[in-house]
């Protein structure tokens, strides 16, 4: 199943950068210097693309056929091995740790070839959430996780429609800081209280 996209963000087409129309961009260059800059360009393209479409995860196989890695007008596409390499680069310190592989198969992201793409890292989401709580005077109020991610009250908020797991991760950051507590019975009945 493809990631559900909030309709508001899928209507506008993503403005691809100029180098997206440059055929060699779709082949990773052997020269280490060129390669590094290419990895960086791909990294920023992936981040702005996923941000535009509000994607929180990326699957190597699924995304292979999306416009992100496939430019139909050039008839060029990035091979899955290169997608993997770019995502692995993004998960490293050099790449800003903007990607985290899901699954246990080590750093190379074996398993499902699926990863989190953090155009906003959990800590950054935590800040967004905290300032929202502060702004709306909801300290000490019990909120359900569903309410935060899907509720009518948060429509229009940046985190509306956020992946529930990522939401929980972000709240986990606040829990660690002692700013919130998650409680409740069962995965889908979780609530959070901010302090």
């Amino acid at each position: 199943m493809p990631d559900p996209l909030p309709p508001a963000y899928t209507n506008e087409t993503f403005p691809f950068p100029p180098h997206y129309s440059f055929p060699p961009f779709f082949t990773l260059q052997p020269n280490p210097l060129t390669r590094t800059s290419q990895l960086q360009s791909w990294s920023s393209l992936i981040l702005s693309y996923t941000r535009h479409h509000r994607l929180s995860t990326l699957s190597v196989v699924e995304s292979y056929n999306t416009p992100l890695f496939h430019n139909p007008s050039l008839n060029r596409r990035l091979p899955t091995s290169d997608i993997r390499e770019i995502l692995t680069y993004m998960s490293s310190k050099d790449g800003g740790e903007r990607v985290e592989w899901i699954g246990k198969h080590g750093k190379d992201g074996g398993a499902g070839g699926k990863c989190w793409v953090y155009w906003r890292r959990p800590e950054e989401w935590a800040d967004v959430l905290e300032s929202w709580v502060e702004r709306t005077g909801q300290k000490g109020v019990v909120l359900t996780l569903y309410e935060i991610g899907e509720g009518d009250a948060t429509v229009g908020a940046e985190f509306h429609g956020l992946d529930p797991e990522l939401l929980q991760k972000s709240l986990g950051v606040l829990v660690k800081k002692g700013r919130a507590q998650i409680f409740g019975a069962g995965e889908d009945q979780l609530g959070v209280k901010f302090f």
Binding site: L143, E150, I182, F183, G184, L190
Partner: peptide, 28 residues
Amino acid sequence: MGSQNSKVSAQDKAILDMKVQRDKLHQY
């Protein structure tokens, strides 16, 4: 989640239960 320090009271839990019910109705 594991640490059960008493920052969350019984009322909080009751409120959560109600809100969870509300969410379920929403989903329904």
